[in-house]
Write a protein that binds this DNA or RNA. Structure first.
Lengths: 185, 185
DNA sequence: GTCTATAATTTGATAGAC
DNA sequence: GTCTATCAAATTATAGAC
């Protein structure tokens, strides 16, 4: 059973968007990537905004599926944050690209509002997930503060590491970030 | 004495690029922003790449001028990092936009290499500056590790805070980041 | 679902007059 | 330095046949 056209279109679009942003994806590029005509692409995604929304939805879903799987056997906060880090790390090392929502978040001001909402939800869910892994000894406020810093750090270092030869930066920095997050209670 | 055309073009281009990215800036937009014709824009910047390079150069220069001024009377590491934070903070709160190099860094894969190099230099210089403010008691390796995490955190939280209503996120997170950076020696 | 054909607009860029 | 005029290519999108 081979991949259906909609999936192949989303794959091609994600590849391009995670490298050049929203405006770096055109219907004709996707058409040639999947070897159909651009008018056929419009059958699957009538407007570009529809494509963008579908991309963000799929990305978010897959992210949390992967995260849940990675954290399945994690018990300590350290292990759970290690799982979180691993999902970001794989997205960077295997796809050799930044986070879709990180890139779109930077371009936010120029995006249709449906996309902006999706990006927002992705970050909120990231922070919620991390906050809930932190030790119960911390206040809710403190958990959210540290979770926000950890997510921001992952987004920032993913972008920086991707934009240079030395990808090892990601490992070094996220290692420190986790240590800092779990530091003095 | 009023602002010359080149400067007004750079201002308009920076405004647009810091909101929608490289592809969100067109010669015709800049022409209408500055009330000249698009062919005249090409007189100032023959190719779009020339415009991009000039933007990054000006942005980097201004960033470090502002940073040096802000840190002029700072003596302790904490005060110096406070100055660094303030420059990022003002760029976010006053311009209501993300860092030009942060956005272009995310789009890196789709940019002309001259732009990629400029973005790279901006981050390297950021990390160098921060590393040199840290206590001499730390090893060079440790300084660079912490400096990279601090810069990444600033970039990440700037993007996240800009993409939501609640801009206070920036203050909360950068406060924590600085504390963590100066934590246990 | 995919195609041909096409429309309407935008884009980066150039030639040459003033 | 700025203009008019223009170009070739790219872009989002639609109508209608198969």
């Amino acid at each position: 059973m081979q991949t259906d056209t909609t999936t192949r279109l989303l794959d091609a679009a994600e590849y391009r968007m995670r490298r050049g942003g929203y405006n770096a994806v055109s219907f004709r590029d996707l058409a040639s990537d999947t070897e159909i005509k651009s008018s056929s692409v419009h059958y699957h995604f009538p407007k570009k905004e529809d494509l963008g929304v579908a991309l963000i939805d799929r990305y978010t879903e897959r992210f949390f599926d992967t995260l849940r799987a990675a954290a399945q056997n994690a018990t300590t906060p350290k292990e759970k944050l290690g799982a979180f880090r691993k999902v970001y790390r794989d997205a960077l090392y295997e796809d050799k690209a930044v986070c879709l929502c990180g890139l779109l978040g930077a371009e936010m001001a120029g995006l249709p509002s449906a996309l902006a909402d999706g990006v927002q939800s992705f970050f909120d869910a990231n922070i919620d997930w991390v906050a809930n892994t932190l030790p119960e000894t911390l206040s809710k406020t403190e958990k959210y503060k540290r979770a926000s810093a950890l997510v921001a750090g992952h987004q920032g270092v993913m972008m920086m590491a991707n934009s240079r030869k030395d990808k090892k930066l990601f490992d070094t920095v996220t290692d420190l970030l986790i240590t800092q997050t779990l530091g003095q209670n």
